[in-house]
């Protein structure tokens, strides 16, 4: 279980990115973190694995206080937290396989990783994962030869190869088209349920979040202003999180579009299987 206790972050410029966030994520639960740009979503996720050092407050992963760890222990604990990024953050000049294997860096010594001598079972797992995310034949390509959706799949495979207990996912679909976005979100939620992973997913697209997660947390100006089921996300709540806007018209239109997209997707799937 992941537990945040009064987690705060103040950047040097003086603005409070996080103001005492309390949050519990039980094992295996996928949580979507929504909120306007600048609400502190990315900061929150980065404070959990301390890519950004929190100013105060605590992070607990099970019984371990992540915020109290020295650098060596922190590296060990980071292995349990897989991270997926908006712009994929792959090493562009390395191959797909090297990128996936880099998920194991926390388990492998420097020289072994330098000479790319990863343990045989790790390589087996990497191949299996590439098959799972549908990239088997691309393993020897350079990462910058892939499309956006394929790159994000590599990013996902890298995070999963870490054998994490929780995934920290930062805007996984923000750079992708609507169809690929759904496929990526579906893949992430499937992998989480297959492997009993918890996840915190930062996401802009509220409708997409509602489709794939069990719980939604709304963040506004560094504070949690909503925590509930996707269905409880009423217009009033959206206004509370994002500010005044005509949600109904927008929502209707999105739903319409989504229905259309779903139908066309189903047709395409039929075409593929037929």
């Amino acid at each position: 279980m992941l537990r945040l206790h009064r987690l705060s972050k103040q950047y040097q410029a003086g603005d409070d990115a996080l103001k005492g966030v309390d949050l519990e994520v039980p094992d295996g639960q996928v949580v979507a973190l929504i909120g306007p740009s600048g609400a502190g979503k990315s900061t929150l996720i980065r404070c959990i694995n301390r890519l950004v050092e929190p100013s105060s407050g605590q992070v607990f992963l099970d019984d371990e206080e992540v915020t109290a760890l020295g650098s060596r222990r922190l590296r060990r604990t980071r292995r349990r937290m897989g991270m997926i990024f908006q712009e994929y953050a792959l090493i562009e000049r390395l191959t797909v396989m090297e990128n996936v294997l880099s998920g194991q860096l926390g388990y492998v010594g420097f020289l072994r990783s330098y000479f790319r001598r990863f343990p045989t079972e790790t390589v087996q797992q990497a191949f299996q994962l590439l098959e799972r995310v549908g990239l088997t034949e691309h393993y020897d390509k350079r990462a910058d030869e892939l499309s956006g959706g394929q790159r994000q799949r590599v990013g996902i495979a890298r995070a999963i190869l870490q054998q994490p207990d929780i995934l920290l996912v930062d805007e996984p679909t923000a750079s992708l088209d609507p169809r690929t976005s759904r496929q990526i979100m579906r893949l992430i939620s499937e992998l989480c349920s297959e492997r009993q992973l918890a996840a915190i997913v930062n996401i802009h697209d509220v409708t997409l979040a509602q489709m794939f997660v069990a719980r939604i947390v709304g963040l506004r100006e560094g504070e949690v202003v909503f925590d509930g089921k996707p269905d409880d996300l009423t217009n009033e709540v959206l206004t509370e999180i994002y500010g005044e806007e005509d949600w109904q018209t927008a929502n209707d239109r999105t739903e319409e579009k989504e229905r259309a997209a779903k139908e066309s997707l189903e047709e395409q799937m039929k075409g593929l299987s037929g």
Binding site: N49, M81, M83, A89, S113, G155
Partner: peptide
Amino acid sequence: EAIAATGAN
């Protein structure tokens, strides 16, 4: 960030 997040040294 991505590599550091894996627990790499």
